[in-house]
Amino acid sequence: MRLVYVLFILFCPSIFTLSNGAEAIIVVANTQDKSIQLNRQQVRNLFMGGALPYDLSAVALPPENQTRVLFNTKVVGLTESRIQSYWAQMRFTGRKKAPKEIESEQLVLEYLKNNQGAIGYLPAGITLPKELTVVYQIH
């Protein structure tokens, strides 16, 4: 029984860290249809260049960006190096092109606001202008 307590105490902090608001990710789109809701698999497909029924074009943050690292881990489920090698294969076989990269979260927000059909991921808690819709959220 004592062991259970020890395990509980050990794991509790990590549970708190995982559900911490600072680590939650939202996927935001500039779309007229405010009712669009995507699931994790659809978001993953979209950011890996897959076809989707909606006409949305993804933008990403640069490789070292913390929000991107969280997005890779929680949504795509692949390491950065695996994502890079996937895009190398897609590019040099003429299949797909990686999402346009935008330097920072603020600039992504700016870009999304100005481009209809654009979709990007951002840290939850960022203030969104009313033109943008949250289509997916993960804690």
Binding site: S85, Y86, A88, Q89, F92, T93, G94
Partner: peptide, 20 residues
């Protein structure tokens, strides 16, 4: 002119960065 997609990596044989 294109590479033939016989197998998974047939069209990216030369792009070593693309595979482990």
């Amino acid at each position: 002119k294109q590479r033939i997609p016989f197998f998974n990596y047939s069209d990216s044989l030369d792009v070593g960065f693309a595979y482990p």
